[in-house]
Structures are given as C-alpha cells and as structure tokens.
Design a protein around this nucleic acid. Structure first.
Length: 209
DNA sequence: ATGACGATTTACT
DNA sequence: GTAAATCGTCATA
C-alpha cells in the first residue's frame, strides 16, 4: 500500500469527503502516447457531493452525456470543458450510480517536467521560464500540463492506460491538511460556504485563492 | 434553433 | 483589482 502501486477499485470507493483528503499525497500519473509519464503529487482537492450538492454538475441527479462518467464505477475519470478553453479533472468515487467525485485542483510536479512546461508554455515559448509553482497550481493548469482533455473523460484509473493514481513511495504520515470552502461556486448558495476543499499545508504548488 | 453561463486563467489598468 | 478570452453544454422554445 505504499510504493508506486496503483490504487485499486476498493480504494476509490470511499465517500468524496474522505477521498478528497486521502488523495492528497497520492500521485496522479498521465501516460501519453509516446509512453512518457507525466506525474505529480496531489496537493489540493475539492469534494463534490452529488445529488444534494448545488455546486455539483450532478446536482438533482442531472445525467447527461457530459456527466455520465460520474455515474460510473469508482475510479473513473470525469473530465469536463469549461469557460470555452479549460479542462478540469475529477476522480469519481462512492458507489456505482452515485454521482459523487473529487476535483483535482493542484499538483506538485515530479515526472515529465520538460513536457509539462512545453504543454503549459503559451505562444512560441515562454516554456523555459515557466516557474515550477505555475505548472500545476490550478485545476485547469494541471490538465493542460498533463495533456488531459475530454477524450479521457470516462476512462478507468484502475485498469486504463492513459491515467492512473499511484501511492507515493514516501508515504510519511505527519502531513497536515488545511480545510476551506470551495472555489468558484458562488452560485451554489449555502453549498458555496461548506468547507469541502483541502490542501497540503505549506505546499507552494497549491492554487492562489 | 437560440441564449445564458460557467468547478478558470491570464493580461492589463 | 478588473476584465477579456472563448465555446461546449444545457435549458427553453
């Protein structure tokens, strides 16, 4: 349970509040077509509680082509496109047919840094001067860095080839989490204020907010 | 068919 | 701090 091993189906089958905290410290791994691994330690997450959660895409049981992966088995990726230009990635959890998930908001990059910089660099190439702390410090930034888009929505993190979650080799305890309200969900009324976001205390790779 | 709106990021005043 | 960028998705008709 602690050295680069892939997470199992059973490990993803937790409620989103629990999983959001457990995922911090785990490693998100993206294997691109060339075979290269792009990876980072998860340092910031948000829990989306499904049917009763006004901030969730699955609020009220909404089920469309986009949100369909949220109704799949735990360990499914749910990737959506927003603001006409950004992608964000969730880890579907809970039980089959229960549309709950954890949004991945920031990573501490550890593998494939040059490729991540190239993926993130805009225009010709400010890639080289891209700061480490700007690579994956936001939900859309990490998707851009790891080349994650809608084509990966619905893919399986347990048995799939493109995306997976691994246990970090150094699974030292002593990590403190900071718990605050979620970001960018002001429309969700009372649900906007619930403390459903967690980040690794002291990490310089979290999003600013 | 149409219109309103983002689970954001970046650039600029 | 404010605003632009930019288009898929979803509800309404």
């Amino acid at each position: 349970m602690s050295d680069g091993a892939r997470w199992t189906r059973a490990e993803f089958a937790a409620d989103p509040v629990t999983l959001a905290q457990r995922l911090i410290g785990a490693v998100l791994v993206r294997t691109v077509a060339s075979g290269e691994r792009l990876a980072g330690i998860i340092v910031e997450t948000e829990a989306y509680l499904g049917v009763p959660d006004k901030a969730a895409h699955s609020y009220g049981g909404r089920r469309t082509a986009r949100t369909e992966p949220m109704y799949g088995p735990p360990g499914t990726a749910y990737v959506y496109f927003t603001y006409g230009m950004h992608h964000c990635m969730n880890v579907v959890c809970g039980a089959q047919d229960e549309p709950v998930a954890v949004l991945l908001r920031a990573l501490d990059p550890i593998e494939g840094l040059d490729t991540m910089r190239a993926n993130r660099g805009r225009g010709r190439d400010r890639a080289a001067e891209m700061k480490m702390t700007d690579l994956c410090s936001g939900p859309a930034k990490l998707c851009q860095a790891l080349a994650i888009d809608r084509s990966l929505s619905g893919s399986d993190l347990v048995d799939g080839a493109g995306l997976s979650v691994e246990h970090h080799p150094n699974t030292q305890g002593r990590r403190r989490l900071v718990n605050t309200p979620r970001i960018g969900v002001g429309y969700a009324q009372e649900w906007a204020e619930m403390p459903l976001r967690w980040r690794l205390e002291g990490s310089r790779h979290v999003s600013r907010n």
